[in-house]
Design a protein around this nucleic acid. Sequence first.
DNA 1: CATGAATGAGGTTTCATTCAT
DNA 2: GATGAATGAAACCTCATTCAT
Lengths: 211, 211, 211, 211
Amino acid sequence: MTKAPVARRRDREATRSRLLAAAIDEFARHGLNGARGERIAEQADSSERMLYYYFGSKVGVFRAALEAVYADLRDAERGLALDQMPPMEALDHFSRFVWRYYAEHPEFISLLNTENLHRGRHLRDSAQVSELVSPVIGMLADLLNRGATAGVFRDGLNPQTIYLAIASLGYFVLSNRHTLSAVLGHEISACQQLEAHWLECARIIQRYVAP
Amino acid sequence: MTKAPVARRRDREATRSRLLAAAIDEFARHGLNGARGERIAEQADSSERMLYYYFGSKVGVFRAALEAVYADLRDAERGLALDQMPPMEALDHFSRFVWRYYAEHPEFISLLNTENLHRGRHLRDSAQVSELVSPVIGMLADLLNRGATAGVFRDGLNPQTIYLAIASLGYFVLSNRHTLSAVLGHEISACQQLEAHWLECARIIQRYVAP
Amino acid sequence: MTKAPVARRRDREATRSRLLAAAIDEFARHGLNGARGERIAEQADSSERMLYYYFGSKVGVFRAALEAVYADLRDAERGLALDQMPPMEALDHFSRFVWRYYAEHPEFISLLNTENLHRGRHLRDSAQVSELVSPVIGMLADLLNRGATAGVFRDGLNPQTIYLAIASLGYFVLSNRHTLSAVLGHEISACQQLEAHWLECARIIQRYVAP
Amino acid sequence: MTKAPVARRRDREATRSRLLAAAIDEFARHGLNGARGERIAEQADSSERMLYYYFGSKVGVFRAALEAVYADLRDAERGLALDQMPPMEALDHFSRFVWRYYAEHPEFISLLNTENLHRGRHLRDSAQVSELVSPVIGMLADLLNRGATAGVFRDGLNPQTIYLAIASLGYFVLSNRHTLSAVLGHEISACQQLEAHWLECARIIQRYVAP
DNA sequence: CATGAATGAGGTTTCATTCAT
DNA sequence: GATGAATGAAACCTCATTCAT
């Protein structure tokens, strides 16, 4: 009358990942303190008890959620193939990738903000921080070298600065979409407006790297 | 051994403003859900009861705190006198003002993030949103015109884009200081590093507006 | 600059009676525990402080309200002139008076119910209970004698029984109007229905007293 | 010196019903606003927390208590077997049943009064109102027909009127026992007095239905 | 392994009242 | 005498978690 071990195993993983997905959503919507185990359990069609069973504590769930969204970003970044394109085009492509990723993953932005509210303590406790270090700084460094050699970029550009600039320009308007729309009186995060904004942001980057 | 709020004079404004200052600090440290009325009362050397007497509810305190930090920014912005300086210098001055304001007012960044987590609902319920609209977009528009006329800026620049770019570049590294330091392995928000970063950000803006 | 004593005196009485009227309404709507001093003060266009000033405590206000509604009933009862009418007509008139009084003074019913919930303790503490003793039992006794002598009523009727029966028949449907309408599926307390009900109740009384 | 709810077995129904019984008692004694969760928990030898676990909120507990007392009445009414007795005897039996039920269930009267103070809102929110509709009106209708056919009752009597009259006569003196004893100067709700009163009330009904 | 029942501790909020001019 | 400011105590309710089978 007991289920076959294999099916159980699958169920186990399936339940865990449904809980994790629900947790990411819940933490993104309500922050760490506002999140409710009850809602996570319900959305995952499981029970609160299981949440503790798999993750130990609320903070444990949050840590897992945070690691998961970082891992997803890293995986997406790994898919970039900047070295196949002309330098300026590659830089544009990279910027677009970052911005679109933020736009399509509001849960990433929200979890990061929440983690910063908590002074990064969960990230610190997390597995290997080294695992989080993204490959993109290296990729950008290569790209900048290639562009400089080709004469389309200035010399002496710092890949970290470029990365921070690109991230900043994409992050700010999405992270602060609600207060900005109250203060500016219109939605900068609306699809059309966003596209126009990105176009101009791309220009900011281009002019910065141009010789 | 004596209780703290003993001989408090019946000074409505003083009590209220001590509570408000303590609330801003508490919400900035812990977010809306993580904030504790008890801690606010204690820090303000008053009682939790007074918090409700003046602000009605926890959300009421948060709304007041949010309005206060916006009002402070607006007041500081009013003190800017960009029209007295050469255009490019004025633009630099403006950028520096914004960035330094963010650096010196981490509570502003935190409250804004918290308000965005809550989808801007408290700002919406707040008195006049129009009161929040800052004068800086107008000031920047004037400055861009002046600079274009003088030939130091390009024509057709959008003041909102410039404002968003400046704000973005300053906000991101401070708001995400803890996750960035975990991921990058060093503190970009440290004083020296920040100065270097701002120098480069100023360059990004300069190159963007240059003809 | 001070007001004339006479005007003050008037104000004083006016404020007190506005507070009392508001209190009767509030206690009738919400009971003793549900009533709020704040709402009483607001409805009386005065302050909560004045409520304590005039009545000492919440229970003091309730006692005053209870005394007031009893006094109003007694005054109304005093206006009855049953001895001017033929006995059966007078009995009908009396029943109608009681029923209409209940219908027109829902606050009386509600305050009585509240006082009974509290086991009559406020009435006990109240001034002279003797002042509450209504003249109607005596009036009814006279009427029953007159009717018996005239041969239109039976001998040996107890005035208290008659009074309780009349009061019961009028009180129940009004006091329980909300639960009755939920259980019976229609509003017995609606004007038309009430009139029909009273007609039948009058008949109950008539048949009871008939020889 | 040991805490009370120590070795309680995990018996869902037992705990729930102890809480419900305690709640009925507490609400009957103090009304909705005057009732204290702490006292309910203590009387049920459980914890306040469990009250919320099973009923969600104070209003939820009240609703459950109200439903329970109605269900008890309905169950008792179902036990009546009026069709086995001669009509007039059956009517007397029914009246006595109602009056005795009220006398033996003061909590029923008190909860009903409380619910009426709150305008019947909890009954409205309650499960099926239809479930509350008692079978007695139908039983009375049958009885009246039987009596009319047998010639011991008048024709054209309305069962609802009879029901309301019986209920009124029983309810009033019990619901208002405390104010009545203050006003009349003696306890009508004392056992002997009550018996005498009921005897006379039975006569009122008999004379009303007699041909 | 899995799960429904249970709960201590503490959070937000309200109440009736008093203080101090 | 009249009033705005203040408040201790306790109410209702929630949170994250553990118990016990």
